[in-house]
Nucleic acid binder design. Structure first.
Length: 646
RNA sequence: GCCAGCGUAGCUCAAUCGGUAGAGCAACUGAUUUGUAAUCAGUGGGUUGUCAGUUCGAUUCUGGCCGCUGGCUCCA
């Protein structure tokens, strides 16, 4: 007998080699029936796996959040079974659960159409209705190989070959079996037929390798209850409503033009106003933070990019060169070499360091056409770039300073939750990286020191470092709990050497400075898209392109309204007067749809008392307010960058 | 770049089994002067993304290109 500890602290005894399902039966028959998987000493396991020794066991049941992964994985098998029934010539790839759903990759001559998906779903529902028991079969690899050859599943055979150990598991439901690690539900009937949905079909390279065949990936989602599926679909709708691509058009902020080139953004007046507000705040913070601001050209001679190494590593991502007086010039994909030019314009002393040079530098990168996506991925964008050039002794302080600065700046834009990633070398492949081991270790040390000094949780990403140095990335979490990478703080062991950057030390000798490359907002275009989606277009007062619309009740209030408009504008309020022939209700509606923070109604009463009646975009009515008070309120909210309207 | 889908007025969409297109909103004009999410009436607006091909005839069918969408790959 072995001892199995349960989450409530009690311990049960079961036979050695009893299955997890057996243990569940000991706890209670109803639990066993609802069981979908077990967690043994923290690892998710299939119910049919054996317990070989004393352990901690949690039984996951249908309906539980943790069990969803199992449900979705099983649903992906049901999808595969349905596809094999309706399209027997199809070859199977892999079919895992993913966030919010699952997919299965198939190889089939003819692509799956929308109509095919409908047919497949029908078959899936039949499989669920049949309530087929799901069996877990332990096989020798040899036996498993034979079966797969018989089934003519080349992709599965490839996976089997690479499986460690001598055994493999296969899951069988009805006539369908699939090489799979599991875990799975006990039967197909545990899936709710009315809570599954196939969402899309897309191409996906076999094993993520673009040199391998492209399979067809069918995406789907599955939930325990239809109501959960509905909630999920509603959430997707909510995300769509905030999609910046829709909002930048509806709110007349930014546009793209087919005839002018893909991935190139046009900022309209209101988008432009916001951009100026963002940039002004950014500049103010940078001056306060000890940075100097520099400006550099958009193009530079090929020689610069040869020296920097960009032409070696990233030529494909650069726009083609142009011939100027027999010299090759490239559009800049990065700002660093230009900042190096400024550094090298004179002999530098250790007394000048650290230098912190920032630039809102517009760069152009030839992104592959399929990767372009609204403002989130464009070909011409402005980096809020800076280079910190310092001595090795100063590096710890500088890193900590950048980290603090970045978090503070992002908070200034209304983001509160962050995720920090430390990207370091792949320890098994040192040859992939520039710079000496000692430098890498020291650099990693300073990065960790900074993160731990602020007691921030972080994730270590092995092998995610860039070839020229380790880095810290900061991701922000937006109002919809999605994470987006913004800040990157990168050591650069490549550039200082390639450009032979030096400073004269206390000892009168030349030394090589350390260089840190950092972008905090990342790209302004991208960051702007995040702001638009984070606020759903309802911007805080300090960012709103139009802060208030004045709504005169009738034309006889126009002179007073114009006077209020002029007073507000002279105080820096971004104000518009709606002098159209709409009725007041119509004017309010128009302002509301534009998500303008304040609507200020002006009629007889207001005109007599030098007030405006303030309606918030939330629908709240603040009643009549003296004009001076309203101006003061907006001024105060500008200053605090508060998201409140009052 | 790859796979799939899509491209009709500024926006959202309709129509044409191949016979050159229509609505709502927006715009414009006129009337209306209104108290917290749509005042009424009228007018203009499209070489149906683009270039070829098939056809008596193409917006509809075929192909190239451009762009967009969902993925994959990529992201210094």
């Amino acid at each position: 007998m072995i001892h199995v500890s349960l989450p409530n602290g009690s311990v049960i005894k079961v036979e050695r080699d009893a299955t997890i399902l057996d243990a569940a039966r000991v706890i209670g028959p109803r639990l066993a029936q609802a069981a979908v998987a077990g967690v043994v000493d923290g690892d998710l396991r299939d119910l049919r796996e054996k317990l070989t020794g004393d352990c901690q066991l949690t039984i996951l049941t249908a309906g539980s959040g943790e069990g969803l992964e199992v449900l979705r994985h099983t649903t992906s098998h049901i999808l595969a079974q349905a596809v094999k029934r309706r399209f027997p010539e199809t070859k199977l790839g892999i079919g895992p659960a993913v966030e919010d759903g699952f997919y299965y990759d198939f190889d089939r001559e003819q692509p799956f159409s929308e109509d095919d998906l409908a047919v497949i779903v029908e078959e899936m529902k039949a499989i669920v209705a049949a309530d087929l028991p799901i069996e877990r079969i332990l096989l020798s690899k040899q036996e498993a190989g034979k079966r797969l050859e018989l089934q003519d599943e080349p992709y599965k055979l490839e996976l089997l070959d690479e499986l460690p150990g001598d055994t493999a598991t296969s899951f069988q439901q009805g006539e369908f079996s699939d090489l799979c690690r599991g875990p799975h539900l006990q039967s197909t009937g545990q899936v709710s037929a009315d809570a599954i949905r196939l969402t899309s079909v897309a191409g996906a390279y076999w094993r993520g390798d673009e040199h391998r065949p492209m399979l067809q990936r069918i995406y789907g989602t599955a939930w325990w209850k239809a109501s959960e599926l509905d909630e999920y679909l509603e959430r997707i709708e909510a995300i769509k409503a905030r999609d910046h691509r829709r909002l930048i058009r509806d709110l007349d902020l930014v546009s793209f033009h087919e005839e002018a080139g893909a991935g190139l953004a046009y900022w309209h007046p209101h988008g432009g106003r916001m951009r100026v507000l963002i940039e002004d705040y950014w500049r103010k913070r940078h001056f306060e933070g000890g940075y100097e601001i520099v400006f550099t050209p958009h193009i530079g001679r090929a020689r610069l990019w040869e020296t920097s190494g960009h032409l070696d590593f990233y030529k494909d991502g650069m726009y083609a060169p142009m011939d100027i007086d027999g010299q090759e010039y490239y559009l800049k994909p990065m700002n660093c070499p230009f900042h190096v030019m400024i550094y090298k314009s004179q002999t530098r002393s250790y007394r000048e360091l650290p230098l912190r040079w920032a630039e809102l530098g517009t760069v152009y990168r030839y992104e592959r056409s399929g990767t372009l996506h609204g403002l989130l991925r464009v070909r011409g964008f402005t980096q809020d770039d800076a280079h910190i050039i310092c001595t090795p002794e100063q590096i710890d302080d500088e890193i900590l300073r950048v980290l603090d600065f970045s978090l503070s700046l992002l908070r200034g834009f209304g983001f509160e939750e962050f995720k920090i990633e430390l990207s370091v070398r792949d320890p098994s492949r040192p040859e992939k990286y520039a710079g000496e081991d000692a430098m890498w270790e020291a650099a990693e040390g300073s990065l960790i020191k900074a993160i731990t000094a602020r007691d921030l949780p972080y994730e270590r990403m092995e092998g995610e470092a860039v070839f020229y140095g380790p880095k810290i990335d900061i991701k922000i979490r937006d109002a919809l709990h999605r994470t987006w990478q913004c800040t990157t703080i990168q050591f650069d062991f490549n550039i200082p050497g390639r450009f032979e950057m030096t400073y004269v030390g206390e000892d009168g000798l030349d030394h090589r400075p350390y260089m840190v490359h950092r972008a905090l907002l990342g790209s302004l275009e991208r960051f702007y898209a995040l702001l638009v989606e984070h606020y759903g277009g309802a911007f805080p007062v300090w960012l709103a392109p139009v802060q208030t619309v004045l709504i005169p009740i009738s034309d006889r209030h126009l002179p007073f309204a114009k006077d209020v408009e002029a007073r507000m504008r002279s105080c820096g309020v971004r104000v518009e007067l709606d002098a159209s022939s709409e009725r007041m209700n119509g004017k309010i509606r128009n302002a509301q749809l534009r998500k303008i923070p304040y609507m200020m109604v002006i009629g007889d009463r207001e005109q007599e008392s030098d007030t405006v009646s303030v309606r918030l975009r939330t629908g709240e009515d603040l009643g009549a307010q003296p004009v001076e008070d309203v101006i003061e309120r907006i001024r105060r909210l500008n200053e605090s960058r508060s998201t409140s309207l009052t």
